[in-house]
């Protein structure tokens, strides 16, 4: 694996023994770069049941409110006491596909990341 290491700290600057001195830092680890399949949401099939949100191992399904632009359009989606589908956190979604597998209305499907590249191969 070729990596650009110039932006990372040198051996004299990091804690010894592999210790991470700061709690709750996993948020800064952008596991979204691991993804080869991207979940795509279809609001016209989504009931906002939030089963995807419960099952996502990386808390990469966002919970939205009644004004969520990504909310599902099937059934009740205007109760301020209930969450609505709020979109994906693509910085942390690894593309495991669990959300698509557990969705009872098939409102999420997985697409190869290559579909989202432009002609230069950039996202």
């Amino acid at each position: 694996m070729v990596t650009e290491n110039h932006d990372k700290k040198g051996w004299k600057e990091i804690p010894i023994g592999g210790i991470i001195e700061e709690a709750g830092n996993a948020e800064r680890y952008k596991t979204g770069t691991w993804r080869s399949f991207r979940p795509v949401h279809h609001p016209e099939k989504c009931t906002n049941c939030m089963i995807c949100w419960v099952n996502c191992p990386d808390t990469a399904i966002k919970a939205g409110d009644v004004n969520s632009p990504d909310k599902g359009l099937v059934g009740k989606n205007d109760d301020p006491n209930l969450a609505n589908f709020g979109g994906f956190d693509y910085e942390h979604c690894k593309g495991c596909g669990i959300c698509a597998a557990v969705c009872p209305t098939k409102a999420i499907d997985m697409h190869p990341e290559t579909e989202f590249l432009d002609k230069e191969g950039e996202e």
């Binding site: 990596t3 051996w11 990091i14």
Partner: peptide
């Protein structure tokens, strides 16, 4: 690959 080597260097 990003930090293991630095820890070995330590």
């Amino acid at each position: 690959f990003d930090y293991y080597f630095e820890h070995k260097r330590q």
